[in-house]
């Protein structure tokens, strides 16, 4: 009670009363608070001076802090502080740190990169992150692909060739696989015969009579399979026509089918419907030549390189 009296004597009120007797003290702000506020004002002034701040005419005041960087043309430029210029310096620094490795990658032939223990370590780590970022969405983290969609990069069968040069070519320009839908030119029986023939090439359970008929059809002008897959059905890498005589399946999910009938049916599906989905994007615009070279060696070393 006495304390209240004391305070009401020393502290001003705002001078108005609500509901007859409700008054409001006009206490000063705590000193630390006031000075902190002044400090923020000073901070703002300093900040305005250093960094871009006020709009001015058709532009703005850039502030006194500058960033100097080297651009892709090799010109040294200075610009008032901003995040885009900051990115330039960041990229410059990173480029300097990585340059020895990327220069070596650019200068060395593929075989030599793969045989240099230091470079091999760099390829494994840099390639892994490049692969994860750009390739794994389709070919999966380990490069094993998805049957029916994207080829396995770890086996020894290649649609377009597994040499360093061919892998490089695929990465640069992309690929587009195509096989016409044979349901438009062949009847169901003929397609079944072809499917049995293809199955027989890989030693899958099949109907021998149908396979024999399929063999003839395969090499005839009616179906003309041999144009792309060659007459011994080993495929043509220059057009991405797969080898039909090995155990590797991409478009027809033969391994998933448990019965011989199922396997033949999967092959029949591909022959009948054709394929227009073997699309590999071109990476030349997205990745630098050195990055593509790193990926080339990385993919080659995934196990299937030839």
């Amino acid at each position: 009670m006495s304390e209240q009296k004391l305070q009401s004597q020393t502290v001003q009120t705002t001078g108005h009363a609500w509901d007859g007797d409700l008054q409001e003290y006009n206490n000063p702000l705590p000193v630390w608070w006031v000075y902190t506020f002044y400090a923020t004002v000073v901070f703002a002034l300093v900040y305005w001076t250093i960094y871009p701040s006020w709009p001015f005419g058709k532009g703005w005041i850039g502030g006194v802090s500058n960033i100097t960087y080297v651009n892709s043309e090799g010109e040294t430029r200075t610009h008032s502080w901003n995040t885009r210029a900051l990115l330039m310096t960041d990229m410059n620094q990173a480029a300097v740190a990585q340059k020895p490795y990327f220069d070596k990658v650019a200068a060395m032939p593929y075989e030599q990169i793969a045989q240099d223990p230091d470079m091999s370590g760099f390829i494994i780590s840099a390639g892994k992150s490049l692969f994860a970022e750009n390739c794994a969405a389709c070919h999966q983290a380990g490069g094993q692909g998805v049957i029916g969609f994207f080829p396995n990069l770890t086996d020894d069968d290649w649609l377009y060739g597994g040499s360093y040069e061919k892998i490089h070519e695929t990465l640069l320009g992309g690929r587009r696989g195509y096989m016409p839908a044979f349901s438009e030119v062949l009847n169901g029986e003929q397609i079944d015969q072809l499917a049995n023939y293809v199955a027989s090439l890989s030693g899958i359970g099949h109907d021998a009579d149908k396979a024999t008929a399929g063999d003839v059809l395969f090499h005839s002008e009616t179906a003309a399979c041999f144009y792309c897959h060659t007459s011994d059905a080993t495929g043509r890498q220059d057009m991405g026509a797969p080898n039909l005589t090995d155990n590797i399946w991409l478009w027809a999910d033969v391994p998933a089918a448990s019965t011989a009938e199922g396997k033949v049916a999967a092959i029949r599906g591909v022959i009948s419907g054709g394929l227009n989905k073997g699309v590999m994007p071109a990476w030349s615009g997205r990745l630098t030549p050195e990055q593509i070279k790193v990926l080339t060696v990385y993919v080659h070393e995934l196990g299937g390189g030839q």
Binding site: G142, G143, Q144, D155, N247, G303, G304
Partner: peptide, 14 residues
């Protein structure tokens, strides 16, 4: 681990 094994064209496992 990814892939754990690879079936090669002649049926070998790697």
């Amino acid at each position: 681990r990814q892939p754990l094994y690879v079936v090669l064209s002649n049926g070998d496992i790697r």
